[in-house]
């Protein structure tokens, strides 16, 4: 492919990077990334990936834009209230970068559609807000052999890791869903908006690194940060032989929808 003059200029700051360059940018322009959830994590990730020129962005979300989202879900603007989130996101992406093709799926990411949606993408970003979805994404990606970036936030804390086929998965750390009664209560569901931004952009950076094939991904490492103290920590971990999905004797061989957690302050 040949970049036109406008593209050369638009992506000049990428091209300048020795590890990106023209070939890297071409890879980005040819890449397809699925973002599951266009909320606190998905919004910044979508913005950066769109700006970076990722050729195809899939976005899946079944929600509509709510007033309480606007504090952190930066792809949605006040006039978008009550608009489907994927529609709102699609409009912004088009404004940022018309190079990007958007597949907007107004739906939930569930066991019945997961594999079908996944199959067209090179990389997946987990921007969901609940454990059933996070475990489903993990299991589906492991089965479909798709790399993905996990992200989770809580109050002032965040954590992220990247799975690539053959390496440790989310279940290698977190064996299974926490019991429903242990899921954060409403009081714990608070989040400093900027922290979602920090994490979403880390996930976008991981996706881009994967696409251009440069650097060290967060594989077999869990990166954690406490933004209150602004301390980052990394814990190395290994693929766990007893992992239910990627271990030596996997017990999970098909996808299923787990029970939804009880707390849902979005409806407030």
């Amino acid at each position: 492919m040949t970049l036109n003059d406008q593209q050369v200029e638009r992506y000049s700051r990428h091209i300048l990077l020795q590890d990106v360059g023209l070939s890297g940018q071409e890879k980005i322009l040819n890449a397809k990334v699925l973002i599951v959830g266009t909320g606190g994590l998905g919004a910044p990730a979508a913005l950066y990936l769109a700006a970076a020129g990722v050729g195809t962005l899939g976005i899946i979300d079944g929600d509509k834009v709510d007033m309480s989202n606007l504090q952190r879900q930066v792809i949605h603007f006040t006039p978008d209230l009550d608009k489907a989130k994927v529609q709102s996101a699609k409009e912004k992406i088009a404004l940022i970068n018309p190079d990007v093709k958007v597949n907007a799926i107004e739906d939930l990411f569930l066991a019945h559609n997961a594999m079908d949606i996944l199959k067209d993408y090179d990389f997946v970003i987990d921007g969901t807000d609940n454990f059933p979805a996070k475990f489903l994404i993990n299991d589906a990606c492991v089965m479909a052999k798709k790399p993905f970036s996990h992200g989770g936030v809580l109050r002032f804390d965040g954590q992220t890791m990247t799975h690539v086929p053959g390496e440790a998965c989310y279940r290698c750390i977190f064996d299974d869903l926490p019991p429903s009664n242990a899921v954060p209560s409403c009081s714990q569901a608070g989040i400093l908006g900027a922290i979602a931004g920090m994490l979403g952009t880390i996930q976008a950076a991981e996706a881009l690194k994967f696409i251009i094939g440069k650097g060290d991904l967060l594989t077999n490492r869990l990166q954690m940060f406490d933004a209150l103290k602004m301390k980052f920590r990394e814990v190395k971990f290994k693929k766990r032989a007893t992992c239910k999905v990627c271990g030596e004797n996997p017990v999970i061989t098909e996808l299923k929808d787990y029970e939804q957690p009880v707390c849902d302050i979005r409806q407030k």
Partner: peptide, 10 residues
């Protein structure tokens, strides 16, 4: 600068 370098790289 830096477009001249960008073009050179390309």
């Amino acid at each position: 600068c830096p477009m001249n370098f960008v073009k050179t790289k390309i």
